[in-house]
């Protein structure tokens, strides 16, 4: 039997009883699984680099599964920024809205990604998105699948399949331990639980499998968030310099490599597609949501004010509204007749 698989449950920020129950059910279910050690931490993204939660995660030696309320990319690269590195494990349980577009990845050009030039420890990190399902069972099944897979040798085919490893599935007939008579009852291990200090954070996370080190972000950001390491690779050097709520550098990144895991727009939060909250009523209009033009003007003003200039509101550079005549199409003979009548100085 391989060494224990560490499963980290990162709690959400919301007091939504359904979400809390899902976390609790997963932790409770995992305590009875053999070969699994459970650690519960506060919301991963809010953990400070030198806080107890992050130190605890950094001390985990081998393979791990991390369940959090973030898209899996957001989780993986947040861990990476904090020195918790490895290879991204292939997850079968995915958020349906997050289905990767394999065609797009296959069609990717020959750009040099930062990831290709970086050393990674030989361990695997599987990131599960707690938004993917509403009940604990699929998550428990996935952890068990990963635990069993972990004991099977993986064969890497190198660059042939874009670096994917081929995994031989475990023998299905392997008897479940629980079904055998056992000498001693399974005593659940207590999970390691790290307390929450409640502070919220806001900073970008770089996906180095996309980043090409083009430096657009360091040029664009005026708040000194970005820096470079010893070999001139871009990194988020001063995350807490970031302006709360501002995702502007993510919008300018030509590779969509910059993730703000907490942003409302799924594409910025690490997913190529929309997801969360589909079952909720959107009251934004009732609470005074501006229309598209108002929104654009407001966003522009935020950036102007942030750099010490005056907000200009609706006064400058708005698109000219099309006149009714233009909307109707080219002028016909009747229009021309009317125009010529208008031109007569009667």
């Amino acid at each position: 039997m391989a060494r224990k698989l560490t499963v980290v449950v990162s709690q959400g920020q919301s007091a939504n009883p359904a979400k809390r129950k899902l976390e609790e059910d997963i932790v409770a279910g995992l305590l009875f699984e053999r070969g699994v050690e459970v650690t519960v931490v506060p919301h991963l993204y809010d953990l400070t680099p030198d806080g107890t939660g992050m130190l605890c995660l950094q001390s985990i030696p081998g393979d791990m599964v991390v369940l959090s309320w973030l898209y899996s990319r957001g989780t993986f690269w947040t861990l990476d920024r904090n020195g918790i590195r490895g290879r991204e494990g292939r997850v079968m349980l995915i958020n349906e809205a997050e289905e990767e577009d394999e065609d797009e990845e296959a069609a990717a050009d020959e750009k040099q990604r930062v990831l290709a030039s970086r050393d990674r420890p030989n361990r695997t990190i599987w990131c599960l998105d707690l938004k993917a399902r509403n009940d604990a069972k699929p998550f428990l099944d996935e952890v068990v699948r990963i635990r069993d897979e972990q004991t099977v040798q993986t064969v890497s085919l190198g660059g042939l399949l874009g670096g994917l490893s081929i995994v031989t599935p475990p023998t299905p007939a392997a008897p479940r331990i629980e079904s055998q008579p056992v000498a001693a009852p399974i005593v659940p291990l207590q999970p390691t639980i790290i307390a929450d200090d409640g502070a919220r954070r806001w900073y970008p996370v770089i996906d180095y499998s996309r980043c090409t080190n083009c430096m657009e972000c360091i040029d664009f950001c005026l708040f000194g968030v970005y820096g470079v390491d010893k070999v001139d690779t871009i990194l988020v050097e001063q995350p807490d310099n970031c302006r709360k709520g501002c995702p502007a550098c993510s919008r300018v990144c030509p590779e969509n490599a910059i993730i703000f895991p907490q942003h409302k727009t799924p594409a910025i939060a690490g997913s190529p597609d929309g997801a969360a909250g589909a079952f909720k009523i959107d009251l934004s209009k009732l609470f005074g949501a501006p229309d598209a033009l108002e929104q654009a003007v407001l966003e522009r003003d935020v950036e102007l004010v942030a750099v010490g200039r005056d907000a200009v509101g609706m006064e400058i550079g708005l698109p000219k509204r099309q006149t009714a005549a233009e909307a109707v199409g080219p002028k016909d003979d009747l229009d021309k007749l009317m125009d010529s009548l208008d031109d007569l100085d009667l």
Binding site: S14, K280, D282, A311
Partner: peptide, 22 residues
């Protein structure tokens, strides 16, 4: 932060709704 009327302030999740706040 200086704000203009209707500028996005944050968001809220409740039993019945999710919404941006302005």
């Amino acid at each position: 932060t200086p704000l203009r009327e209707k500028q996005t302030l944050g968001n809220i999740e409740s039993k019945k709704a999710e919404s941006e706040l302005y």
